[in-house]
Design a protein around this nucleic acid. Structure first.
Lengths: 229, 229
DNA sequence: GCGTGTATTTAGATACGTCTAACTGAAAAG
DNA sequence: CTTTTCAGTTAGACGTATCTAAATACACGC
């Protein structure tokens, strides 16, 4: 049996592989999980012993297929829980992350199945992130780019909101910035502010760190259902 | 913060106080939780340090008011979860115990509130056990006695089914023995078998250890709603 | 190609929850 | 009142996950 901590490490490594270049460095893992480098070292040793990661000393780690499967399982749990909490228990989509972060390690396969069934096998969670299938096939992220990378006048559709700060998410949700919403980049000010105009005519100003967390794509290409919101 | 283990000990002590005479002996706790006596000793020391139990060396422990509150909180979580899994996720009432046993330690107060609201603040769980209120007032068990203690011809109502073996519960549920059902004691055989006749005319034979686990009362006195089933 | 600085690992400690083995207190039997 | 028995506690150990402090490897700049 894997501990909740091990699952957290595998999930973190999975994300870091996606976002950067494998192998993933010890210190990067340590930073992500908010532990010291020696802690990360000792953990990746354990994961390597169990053949969940391939480890090259002083270089870093990459997930083995088994490690990847575990990570996908945890991510599936997380995203199913977020969807469930939002749709069935009336949580605001901005406040589900914390709860899912804990419960993802403690639900049974039976629970996973029943929640998926109750939600009719959803494909994306309330943040707009794809939910791994029951078979845990590798997920291809719906291609999208950061709002911050687009120039004035561009017409865009919000694919995901990557932010993890509940307060910021609540604010964004409140002003109407959430997955599935269309917007136009109104102004990119050189002081680190992006202003967008929403469908409803409202304009919203966002600092760079938020504009980085909002992932967008052209309203034209519709990869699959993003109609949850 | 209390660990899941500490909560388990407090819950166990709570039940043992109810079922027997306080103070609760170390070895009884050890037996209940399936650990060795030294383990139980070291744990009750920790609980005493935190003033969750009153401890008299070589005698045993009794819960302090704070300890009792924690125990009730955990029991509330457990029973709300059992009810939720049964009513909202379609679990069979015989298979919810394991899942609730784990999740009870990991849900937030927010989750507890939302589940209670979704279920319309239920007062009993699917086993027929009362759910502690949000205020965690001490629960008075709905008075009931063991089916095994009643003679032939007695007309009874099933209040609770205390068994924890999922296979036995599934069987009992299958043959129609569940909380809220009425029955008549047909025969008490001296070989350790009780035979009962249900509403629907069916008869069911139950060995003593099952007849001990089924709690009954007279169909007349209706303490409060037992209409969940 | 060598030194220096940063990343990484090793060493040793702590807290938790558990164990086995050894010891001790309390209480019943004589 | 002493002995015996057994429940309960103490002692010492282990595995997990973490830390700080010290040692070491790698890689870049000169």
């Amino acid at each position: 049996m894997l501990s909740a901590k091990m699952e957290d490490y595998l999930k973190a490594i999975y994300r870091l592989e996606r976002d950067g270049e494998p192998p993933v460095a010890t210190s990067t893992i340590a930073d992500t999980l908010d532990v010291t480098p020696p802690t990360a070292t000792s953990m990746v040793e354990k994961l390597a012993d169990r053949e969940l990661v391939e480890r090259e000393k002083y270089k870093g780690v990459t997930l083995t297929p088994e490690g990847k499967t575990v990570a996908l399982e945890v991510i599936r749990h997380h995203r199913l829980l977020e969807t469930f909490l939002t749709e069935e228990l009336g949580y605001d989509w901005s406040e589900v992350h914390e709860e899912a972060e804990i419960l993802e390690h403690h639900i049974s396969e039976e629970f996973e199945r029943r929640v998926a069934a109750a939600l009719d096998d959803p494909e994306v969670d309330p943040h707009g992130d794809p939910i791994p299938s029951d078979a845990l096939d590798p997920i291809d992220d719906i291609p999208a780019s950061a709002l911050a990378d687009h120039g004035e006048g561009t017409h865009l559709l919000v694919a995901r909101v990557r932010d993890r700060d509940p307060e910021e998410l609540t604010y964004l949700d409140g002003v109407g910035v959430r997955p599935g919403v269309e917007l136009v980049v109104e102004e990119v000010a050189p002081i680190g502010i992006v202003t967008v105009r929403l469908n409803n005519g409202e304009t919203v100003s966002l600092p760079d760190h938020i504009a980085d967390a909002i992932q967008v794509r052209s309203p034209g290409d519709a990869p699959e259902e993003v109609s949850e919101a």
